[in-house]
Computed example of a mutant assay.
Amino acid sequence: MRKILSMLVLSGCMLTGLSAHAGAIDDAVKRGTLRVGMDPTYMPFEMTNKRGEIIGFEVDLLKAMAKSMGVKLELVSTSYDGIIPALLTDKFDMIGSGMTLTQERNLRINFSEPFIVVGQTLLVRKELQGEIKSYKDLNDGKYRITSKIGTTG
């Protein structure tokens, strides 16, 4: 199974960083609160615990960032397919959900330097082991493929 999955690793990599609109950090400092939009469904970067709190690796980074800025952190749960429009309409100051830097996105919002690089992988059901040897095999209509709306996947 590992061999199949490794063969299906797509060459595109996701550069995970933070995204913001111009002047957002200055506005947050003046206001005393850094508002960060995220879709808390990307474990271990951001997720919701049993108490409904958003936790994760990116949340820990954002807490440290807010502390160093001397502001409170406010996390705003937002669906991923609407996260850029919400940023552009000032629902929050920045995006704190892993996002692939694309030319189209880069023309609309400002990206930080990436703090981690992760690849994209296709996962297949166990019963398809040995049947799918390449991502090209998935061009057959008998397979259904899914991904999250708004992502490069």
Rank of each mutant, 00 (worst) to 15 (best):
K3P: 01
K3R: 14
I4M: 09
I4K: 03
I4Q: 09
L5A: 11
S6K: 15
L10W: 02
L10E: 10
G17D: 02
G17Y: 08
G17H: 09
A20K: 15
H21A: 08
A24Q: 05
D27C: 10
D27L: 08
D27W: 00
A28P: 08
K30H: 11
G32Q: 08
G32E: 06
L34D: 14
R35A: 12
R35N: 14
V36Y: 05
M38H: 10
D39A: 15
T41L: 07
Y42I: 06
Y42L: 15
P44G: 09
P44M: 05
P44Q: 02
F45D: 07
E46F: 00
E46I: 02
T48Y: 00
T48G: 08
N49D: 15
N49M: 07
K50E: 07
R51K: 14
E53N: 08
I55D: 04
G56D: 06
G56L: 04
F57W: 04
E58W: 04
V59R: 13
V59T: 07
D60Q: 12
L61M: 15
L62M: 15
L62I: 08
L62Y: 08
K63S: 11
M65P: 01
M65D: 05
A66M: 07
A66D: 05
A66F: 00
A66H: 07
K67R: 14
K67Q: 15
S68T: 06
S68M: 08
S68G: 03
G70R: 11
K72V: 04
L73F: 05
V76R: 12
S77M: 13
T78F: 03
T78E: 15
S79Y: 02
S79C: 04
S79D: 08
Y80P: 13
G82V: 10
P85L: 03
A86W: 02
L87F: 00
L88R: 15
T89I: 03
T89A: 08
D90H: 07
D90G: 09
K91M: 13
K91W: 04
F92R: 11
D93L: 03
D93P: 11
M94H: 00
M94P: 02
M94S: 00
I95G: 01
I95F: 02
I95T: 03
G96I: 01
S97L: 00
M99D: 04
M99I: 06
L101E: 12
Q103H: 08
E104G: 06
N106R: 10
R108L: 03
R108A: 09
I109H: 10
N110Y: 00
F111G: 10
S112T: 13
E113K: 15
E113I: 06
E113C: 05
P114E: 03
F115M: 13
F115Y: 14
F115I: 09
F115K: 13
F115C: 06
I116F: 03
I116E: 04
I116N: 13
V117C: 06
V117I: 10
V118S: 11
Q120G: 03
T121P: 05
L122T: 06
V124Y: 03
R125D: 13
K126I: 01
E127W: 04
E127V: 05
L128H: 11
L128P: 04
Q129H: 11
Y135C: 12
K136D: 07
D137W: 02
L138K: 03
N139A: 10
N139I: 09
N139Q: 12
D140R: 11
D140P: 14
R144Y: 02
I145Y: 05
I149Y: 04
T151A: 02
T152V: 10
T152Y: 01
T152H: 00
G153K: 05
G153N: 06
G153H: 07
G153P: 07
